Every structure is written in structure tokens, then in C-alpha cells.
Amino acid sequence: MCVGLPMTVISSDEHTALCERRAEQRQVSTALVGEVAVGDRLLVFIDSAVRVLDEDEARQIDDALDGLAAAMEGKPFEHLFADLIDREPKLPEHLRPTNP
């Protein structure tokens, strides 16, 4: 199974970007997202950027990944899912039933 990771662009050229996440650097293809700028946050799967993220979305993904790791280690994790606390889960719009 692949997990997409938020990474930050530290340099780029026409088709690739050098990205960093927690002190690890990777050369990433940007063929699917087009031109990127230094500081952009990208969702990366197997060394390919699949989407440009805004800062809030990148933080939520990082928090969720940290929360899963904490839960697996038996550590507190609820605070890392703050966006889910005190609300009912909702299906994305495209998965909700339509009324005839």
C-alpha cells in the first residue's frame, strides 16, 4: 500500500523538484502537477507529486500520519485529529446519495 506524504519544494526545474520532509530529501517528478515554486507543499506518492496542497491540508495529513504512528505505539493521539473531534463524519459530496 502506498501512502501519500506532504513534502516541501526546496528547488525545482521544468519537470522535477527536490523536496524535503522531516530532513529526508527526494527528487520528485512534477509531471502531473506542472510548475512548482520553492516552498510549495506537494502530496507525493512513490516520488511523483500528484497534487499541490495548501498549508492547512498538508498539516492535517501530517497530523493524521503522526496520529496513526502514536496509536500504533499506544501513545495519546486524539489531539492529532482535532478536525474530527465534536463533529459527525460526512461522506464527500460525490458519495452522498441523491434524492430523485
Rank of each mutant, 00 (worst) to 15 (best):
M1F: 10
C2W: 07
V3C: 12
V3N: 12
G4E: 01
G4Q: 01
P6E: 01
M7H: 10
M7R: 13
M7Q: 09
T8E: 04
T8C: 04
V9K: 00
I10M: 14
I10Q: 08
S11D: 14
S11G: 08
S11H: 10
D13P: 05
D13Q: 07
D13I: 04
E14P: 04
H15M: 09
T16L: 05
A17G: 05
A17H: 03
A17Y: 02
L18V: 08
C19Q: 02
C19V: 10
C19E: 00
E20H: 07
E20K: 13
E20I: 11
R21G: 06
R21Y: 13
A23L: 11
E24T: 07
E24G: 04
E24A: 08
E24N: 09
Q25C: 09
Q25R: 15
Q25G: 07
Q25S: 11
R26A: 12
Q27H: 08
S29H: 03
S29I: 04
S29E: 07
A31F: 06
A31G: 07
L32I: 04
V33N: 00
V33M: 05
V33L: 10
G34V: 10
E35C: 08
E35H: 11
E35Y: 07
E35L: 08
V36K: 03
V38F: 06
G39N: 12
G39A: 13
G39D: 13
L42A: 07
L42C: 11
L42M: 12
L43D: 06
V44Y: 01
F45A: 05
I46P: 04
I46M: 12
D47S: 13
S48R: 14
S48C: 09
A49G: 09
A49E: 04
A49F: 02
V50D: 02
V50R: 03
V50Q: 10
R51S: 11
R51W: 06
L53E: 01
L53V: 08
L53Q: 01
L53N: 02
D54Y: 09
D54R: 09
E55L: 09
E55I: 10
D56C: 09
D56R: 13
E57Y: 06
E57Q: 13
A58Y: 02
R59L: 14
R59V: 03
R59S: 07
R59H: 11
I61P: 01
I61C: 02
D62H: 05
D62N: 10
D63W: 03
A64F: 04
D66K: 02
D66Q: 11
D66R: 02
D66A: 06
G67M: 04
L68V: 15
A69F: 06
A70R: 01
A71N: 06
A71K: 07
M72N: 12
E73L: 11
G74S: 05
K75Y: 04
F77Y: 06
F77E: 00
E78R: 02
H79P: 01
F81I: 01
F81Q: 00
A82K: 09
D83K: 03
L84M: 15
I85Y: 00
D86T: 08
R87P: 06
E88Q: 15
E88Y: 12
P89T: 15
P89K: 14
P89W: 13
P89C: 15
P89E: 14
K90P: 08
K90V: 15
K90L: 15
L91E: 15
L91I: 14
L91D: 14
P92T: 13
E93K: 05
H94C: 10
L95G: 10
L95M: 15
R96L: 15
R96W: 14
R96D: 14
P97Q: 14
T98V: 15
N99Y: 12
